[in-house]
Every structure is written in C-alpha cells, then in structure tokens.
Write a protein that binds this DNA or RNA. Sequence first.
DNA 1: ATGAAAGCGCTAACAG
DNA 2: CTGTTAGCGCTTTCAT
Lengths: 333, 333
Amino acid sequence: MSMVHEIAKEAGVSASTVSRVLRNETKGKRVDSVERSERIRKIAHRLGYTQCWRATSFANGKTCGIGLVSEHSEWLFYGMMGQLAGELSRALNQLGYHLVVIPVEETGNWKQLVSGGRVDGVVVLHHYSDSIRKNLEPLNLPLIVVGDSHGVHTHGVVYADEDGAYAATRHLIELGHQRISMYARDVVRPHCSVDERRRGFEGAMREAGLDDGAFWCVPEEELFHRIVRTPSPPTAILCYCHVEAELLYQLAWRYGLSVPRDLSVIAFNDLPSTARMSPPLSTVGFDVARVGAMTAKLIVEAVEGRHGETNELIVHPSLNLRASTSPPGAKST
Amino acid sequence: MSMVHEIAKEAGVSASTVSRVLRNETKGKRVDSVERSERIRKIAHRLGYTQCWRATSFANGKTCGIGLVSEHSEWLFYGMMGQLAGELSRALNQLGYHLVVIPVEETGNWKQLVSGGRVDGVVVLHHYSDSIRKNLEPLNLPLIVVGDSHGVHTHGVVYADEDGAYAATRHLIELGHQRISMYARDVVRPHCSVDERRRGFEGAMREAGLDDGAFWCVPEEELFHRIVRTPSPPTAILCYCHVEAELLYQLAWRYGLSVPRDLSVIAFNDLPSTARMSPPLSTVGFDVARVGAMTAKLIVEAVEGRHGETNELIVHPSLNLRASTSPPGAKST
DNA sequence: ATGAAAGCGCTAACAG
DNA sequence: CTGTTAGCGCTTTCAT
C-alpha cells in the first residue's frame, strides 16, 4: 500500500485528501478542514513520509526539471557560462525546479534526454545552433535562449552587446586614443555577439571620425606583427572577451610593453579573475546573477503556461573601469 | 492506449515483447525472434516512438539521474570545480546517465531533491561537510565523494595533494631557493586539501633542513608586509591555488617585483587561464577529464550494484613547469 | 522466448 | 471541501 494511503487510513480520510493537503492545495477556509490538514501533516511527518517524485512526475506529467542544453560542452562551465549555470541552478531551486545538464555531443544521446519528457523545459546558453534548433523545435518544449539572437524569433534573454562595445570604445576615445582595434581570436565561432560587439565598436569609431576598419579576427601569431612589428600600432584594444585580454597581457609582458602606458586594454566579461589581473582589467560586464534569476523566471513561466508580462529581456552592460585603460602614454588612471 | 501497446498491436505481439525488444533485452538466439525484433523496431521508428522516461522511471524505480551536491554553490562552476562538473556530466551521458545539479542552500530545498527518488545516486564535490553528511547518510543513497578524505570512510576519488605539494616544494628547493613559504588566503575554509598540501610542503622543507614553519594563512594585507616590508622575504612561494598566485602577481606588479626573478611562484590547479598568465604559471595539476570519467564510472557502478574492482581512486598530480619559477635572482627558466 | 495480468505511488476528474 | 474511481505508460513477474 502506498504511503499516501497509509497516511489516509491512519487519519481516517481519503488518499486524495492527503495528497491535496500535502501539496497545499487546500484553500484553508473552513476551520474543520484546517484542523484536519494539520493532523494529516503530523501523521505524514511521524510516518517519515517523503514524496516519491517518480510517481508524482508520472501521474501529473511534470518533472520540474529544466534542461541546460549546450554545445561545446567542454566550455559548459567555463568563465561566464559557469557563473551563469550556477546562478541559474540556484534560482531554479528557489522556484521548485532543478537543473539537468544536457551536453550536446555527436553521439546524440542528448536528444533522448530532451525528448523523453525528462525535463519540462529547456534553456539554451549562448549558442542556439542550427543543429540544436533542428532537434528542439519539433519537440515544442518550452524554451528560453540566453544570449543568442541570431535572427531567430524566440523568447529569451539577450545581451546589449552593441551598447557595451560602443560604451567601451567611447571610453577609449575619450581617453584620447586614436588608433584603436578590436580583437577576437580566430577560434571564436561566428556568433551574434561577435557581430554586435563589432557593430558597437565600429559605430563609435565612425562617429568619432576614426578608422573603423580595425576589427581583427586573427590567430595569436598575427597579433605580434600588428602590435610589436608595425610602425604605428594601436594604443588601445577592445577585446572580444577576457581570454583575448590575457593574451594581450602576455604579449605585452613578452615584448616589454606596458599596459596601459603603451597599450590600453578593455574586454568583455567581468569575472572574479579579471579584477585580479595585473593591472586589474577594465571590463564590460553583465550582471550574471540577474541573468540567471531572470532566465529561471522566464522558463518557469513558460513551463507553467503563465506567460508573464515580459518574455524577452535585454540585459544592459556595466563598464567596470580599472587600471588597464588610461590616456595613451600615461601611467595609469 | 500507450505507445508501446500501439506498436504491439501493429506488430501483432504483446506489449511485453515490444518493451523487451526496445530495451535490447532479447538474447537474439532464435532466428525468428530476431526477425520479429527487427520488425518491431521498424514499426516503433515509423510511429515516431520515443520512450517516456517518467513512466519508465516509475515502473522500474530508476531515474538514471545523478545528483551533483555541493555547498557554496556560488563556486559550483568556478575554476576546477567547473571543469570537473563539465567532464562529469559528459562522462555520465556516455554511460546513459545525466547530471542533476543540486546546490545546497540554507532553505533546505535540496533535501527533497535528493530524498525523493529523483536521483539514483549522488556525487559530492570537494567538501563533504557535516551538514551534507548528516542529511545524506540516512538516505543510504549510492554516494561518491570527490576530493574530501576528511577522516571519513567513503568510496570516492581523492587527490594526492601531499605528493603534489612535496613535488612542487622539491622543485623550488632544487632551483636553489632557501626561503620558501606556502600561502593560502585566510578565506580558504578548513579542508583536508589544506592540511595535506601543507604536510607535503613542510615535509619537503624539513627534509632539506629548511624552515618548515613558513605556512601562511593570512589576509591579503598581511602579504604586503611579509613580502615587501620585511628584510629577507621568501624568494619562492607555493600557493594553495591559482587565486593566491594571481594575488601574488598583483602584489609583485604593484611594488615592482619581478616574477620569477624576485619571487618564484607555483600553484595548485592547472586551468586554461594559468598558462595565459604573465609569466605563464608553473602549476601542480590533476587530470580533470580523468577524474570526471572515473567519478562517473564509480557512481554508476555503485548505482547498478556492480561494485567494481576499484571503489577508491587516488589521482596523482603532474608538475607543469612554466615561466614563473626559476633559480632565485635569475630571469626565467 | 513470449503473453497475460498486475502493479509502480500518486494525482485528477467527477460526483457528492 | 471530500471521497470515489480511474488512470498516467511502462516493466515485470509468472505461467506457458
């Protein structure tokens, strides 16, 4: 006999009542039923009742699981993605849900995870590729895409990358820089964030009447030539993310350049480690805790059919100015 | 009518047979049944069958979910933990399981996740606290603890931290350093890794007849005094983890010290970013991909009742010598 | 190797 | 608000 029935017998009520009470599905208007609820809860506690989620999920068709779907799973928990995954999982827990990690691999196991009703909804982080879309769309699962607006209309959270790049570039221009480049490693995959950051950069450059053709998407070796082995190298660089900044710091260290005196550096992604760089890195950052919380809210609303007032959220960047940017030739800010 | 029954009717067999075939529970000895299996699979495919995991889990009592339980969830996916979580989730997928993230919070929601049969087993990362143990033990869930051997006898994966610290210290001694300290920030919680790394450090120091009392667990401000404002500061430092190294680099940068000429630095944790530091950081690292794979194997064996030949694994460190360590006073290696 | 029947433990629809 | 009555879809005995 199932636990719920035992409690029911003990309390002299029906299993449905027990079930309802234990899920707080009683309005608590009539006094007698409130008392009875109390009694039921006590008995449940005395008998050491714990809900069997397998049975509940089966009966009501809800798992309370949210899938975190991501390609290139070797980076799944790296840098900002890691922060975000952590925040998301915590926020979901607060809402009574939990995160199921679904790394997208060639093998295709992930499709079963996502299609077998193991999760109520899905969050795709930063790269909603064609392959993922193709598999996800027919399932018609509640879906929130974070940080990929690649031409597709889906609900989700998007970063105001263009604004961020614009603001960072303005900052460099206002410091007096004239020769400014934007740098992304050549291994960075095509992605809307690249396009938008580039657009923000070029917009600010053009507006200031500066050369807006200085977007570099090159291998590391090439950097050496463009910064060290060139007559008039840029005096400031906007980096696609913190990794580019680390590479620039290394280049500077190796060839005796000083950041920021010889080269100002500013980068996307504000991580705990960026503030510990030498010099501390100026960054364009997003409030990851907020993104996590909003994403959780959006996906849960979608799952529960309560389409909240907002189902698309734009996250605005903040400019964190530290010691890696200064007027050209100056020691530091 | 359930999917399985539809297929059964279509194929003219019973639901049991369909169920067995679809799970490859046929030995395939008799020719006729092999043919029938083929036919069943074809029909299932044609009808677009996808297994309903909620029903399967309910029926056979297995979720194929493994819980990743961790306190201080804000660090859940930071640094090495993040790498490990990623590797673990990928390895589990290969074995037909998936990772469920269970951040331990004050609120206590996590207990329901872990006790309601939502996961078949649990992996605890790096800190098997009393609070976690107290809640987990009575459940009698298969459990693997990674990186915490704190006096408790459990199956799991442990790091050979003492060996790592010993090897790193030997390296510094062999370079000719005499004044060597080990540094851990004061915010590092008490943990077996601190004790063991310290033991390895002090062992090597004592063995070489050097001062083995130079273990520093101090706030950042104090570092300044012990390195900059002291007559004969250490010439080399072993760091508890990469964060301490970043702080030392910053201190050196701020006060005009050179790494490694004035101060050699070596640290635990080999991460993608450590190789990009300036100078590239010498580290003591563990093969995180292997740890992830082994952990997955151990927990799955425990869940499936196949107690493999090994249920405790010791992971040995590797010394990654880069440019942050050199003989005292020398430019670089 | 297969089929029939009996659950797995809880929830939902409906009538009272 | 409560009790009755059916399931949720798949797996697993246990005969055959």
